[in-house]
């Protein structure tokens, strides 16, 4: 659970930093719809994809590109955890 929280926290910081959001990372709810609440567009999603690769050491496959995966911090965290095995 602690690892799960740390991962979500890392993800929130990465999202706030890479998207230049003027908010505290902790204010992002785990289950907040990122596209609806924060108005994420293709440029923002691309930044998140690159962030996952560069900062989390993931290599995304074609099948990883699924809207549901990037919908919330909770989903992204589950995706990262699964990729890390």
């Amino acid at each position: 659970m602690a690892t799960d929280c740390a991962l979500k926290s890392q993800l929130k910081s990465m999202i706030v930093e890479r998207l230049f959001l003027d908010i505290e990372p902790t204010t992002i709810a785990d289950d907040a719809d990122l596209m609806k609440v924060y108005g994420l567009d293709s440029v923002n999603l691309f930044e998140i994809v690159v962030g996952l690769e560069e900062e989390f050491g993931l290599s995304l496959e074609d099948t990883d590109f699924c809207l549901e995966t990037f919908a919330t911090v909770e989903n992204i965290a589950a995706f990262v955890a699964a990729k890390r095995g």
Binding site: S42, F46, V49, D62
Partner: peptide, 25 residues
């Protein structure tokens, strides 16, 4: 490689159920 990812993200957002990553690649 980044261009391919950008294309995948755009297709994922705009094509809905018809999105096929293999086609983009």
């Amino acid at each position: 490689g980044h261009n391919l990812r950008r294309s995948l993200v755009k297709a994922m957002l705009t094509r809905g159920q018809e999105f096929d990553a293999r086609q983009v690649r």
